[in-house]
Amino acid sequence: MSQTQTINTPASQHPPLDLLERASLFLDFDGTLVELEARPDETRVNDRVRRLMAKLSAKLDGRLAIISGRPLDQIDALFGGAGFAISGSHGLEVRMPDGSLSAPIRPTGLDHALREVRGLAAKHEGLVIEDKPFGVSLHYRLAPHTEAECHALVRAMAEQDGLALQIGKMMVEVRVAGNDKGHGLRALMQSPGMFATRPVFIGDDDTDEPALAAAEEMGGAGIVVDPVRPSAARYRLDDVAATLAWLESAVER
Rank of each mutant, 00 (worst) to 15 (best):
L127H: 05
D206E: 03
N46A: 12
A156P: 11
R118I: 09
D73I: 09
M189W: 01
V224P: 01
E173A: 03
A221K: 07
E217N: 07
P192H: 02
M53K: 07
P10D: 09
L60S: 13
E149Y: 13
T9K: 09
E130C: 12
G203R: 00
K132E: 05
I202C: 15
D226T: 01
V240W: 12
N179W: 01
L138H: 10
G182R: 04
G135H: 14
D76K: 13
S87G: 09
S68Q: 03
V240G: 00
T207D: 11
G203I: 00
N179T: 07
D205L: 02
D205M: 08
L165I: 08
A77K: 03
G126I: 14
C150Y: 06
T197C: 02
V176Q: 06
L212V: 15
R115E: 10
D161Q: 15
D41M: 06
K181Y: 01
A85M: 05
G62Q: 10
E37W: 10
D208C: 04
M1A: 13
V49Q: 15
R155K: 13
T146L: 05
S137Q: 03
C150A: 05
S137E: 13
L78H: 01
D226K: 03
G99D: 04
T207P: 10
I167M: 06
E159Y: 15
W246K: 14
V34E: 01
T32F: 00
I105L: 11
D226Q: 13
L17R: 14
R22G: 14
D73M: 05
A103P: 07
D41T: 15
V34F: 06
L19V: 07
L114A: 08
R44Y: 10
T108A: 13
D111M: 08
M218Q: 11
K169Y: 09
I202E: 09
